[in-house]
């Protein structure tokens, strides 16, 4: 199967016209491949991947476990290096731990000895003046609804709160590209829905480019302008882009819409999942088996 565009429309970049402090940056992957070496054997994970992400776009990266979604994201942020090809943000190659990116990890990864506010401050660019830093952190905590918990330690707040703090920390860099690696994966279903709405609010307030890795087809359809499906093709090892789906409609989207249900079916097919649950029109939380609940 080759990369197919389900609808011919180009992704709408809602934020392009808006003048904002955040300068959303486009990301370009050119022939990116990544192979890991273990016990003498070379195991290709990503193979010759070409991808353009527009400034301000929300791109969801979908795929089965271990297909290289996170690797792709890490390469985009300079947390990992491709074995072949290159990635550029705004036309310049990605540097190790690139400053133009903000990373939201699957786990909150907050420093347990720092308060929530100081954890968020960790994300600020180095050398931010103290006064600016304080107002920035206060604004971000307000944005993610944690203003009342600024002085709490990570262990004193819930998983959802910690993940929100982690999101605020990533935003503190004023990133051109926000990289989110299954940021809501470890949360319960209800909290996850709330966090998705929060992410949309945040994106509306600070329209940055977002690369979102997820297991969850519904999450991808709810949040993204465009969804790419990674996976191996044929017998050759290493993932390629197997499908590209431009999601129609403006956000926030109706979670129960028939159009989305149709797309969900397609993506589930692409993931090799039987569609028998889809027809019931039930809001499924565990879209995919093997999900680590």
């Amino acid at each position: 199967m080759t990369a197919t565009s389900v609808t011919g429309r180009q992704p709408t970049v809602r934020s392009a016209a808006r003048a904002d402090a955040t300068a959303a940056a486009p990301v370009a992957f050119r022939g990116v491949g990544r192979a890991f070496e273990s016990a003498g054997a070379v195991r290709p994970v990503l193979r010759d991947l070409d991808l353009d992400v527009a400034a301000g776009e929300i791109l969801a990266i979908l795929g089965p476990s271990g297909c290289g979604k996170s690797t792709l994201l890490r390469i985009a942020g300079g947390l990992d290096r491709p074995t072949s090809g290159e990635v550029a943000i705004d036309g310049t190659p990605v540097a190790p731990y690139d400053r133009r990116t903000g990373v939201g990890f699957q786990e909150p990864r907050l420093l347990p000895w720092r308060t929530i506010a100081k954890n968020v401050a960790l994300g600020l660019p180095r050398g931010t003046p103290r006064e600016t830093a304080r107002t920035q952190v206060a604004r971000l905590l307000e944005l993610v609804g944690l203003a009342d918990f600024a002085g709490h330690r990570p262990r004193e707040v819930s998983g959802g709160m910690a993940q929100r703090a982690s999101l605020a920390r990533a935003l503190a860099r004023n990133p051109g590209v926000l990289l989110l690696d299954e940021p809501f994966g470890a949360l319960d279903a209800l909290t996850r829905l709330k966090m998705q709405d929060l992410l949309l609010d945040v994106h509306a307030a600070e329209p940055t480019t977002v690369l979102l890795v997820t297991h969850d087809v519904d999450e991808a359809l709810q949040l993204a302008d465009r969804v790419i499906l990674l996976g191996a093709e044929g017998d050759e090892p290493g993932a390629v882009i197997r499908q590209t789906v431009v999601v129609p409609g403006r956000r926030p989207r109706d979670r129960g819409s028939a159009e989305l249900a149709e797309l969900r079916g397609r993506l589930l097919d692409g993931l090799g999942i039987d569609r028998h649950g889809v027809a019931r029109g039930v809001e499924t939380t565990t879209t995919i088996p093997h999900y680590p609940y």
Binding site: G77, L79, Y97, R99, V103, F105, E107, R109, L111, L122, G123, P125, R126, R169, R173
Partner: peptide, 12 residues
């Protein structure tokens, strides 16, 4: 993971 987070946020 914390080390990587530290590096990702510009500490080295």
């Amino acid at each position: 993971q914390l080390l990587e987070a530290g590096r990702a946020f510009g500490r080295h």
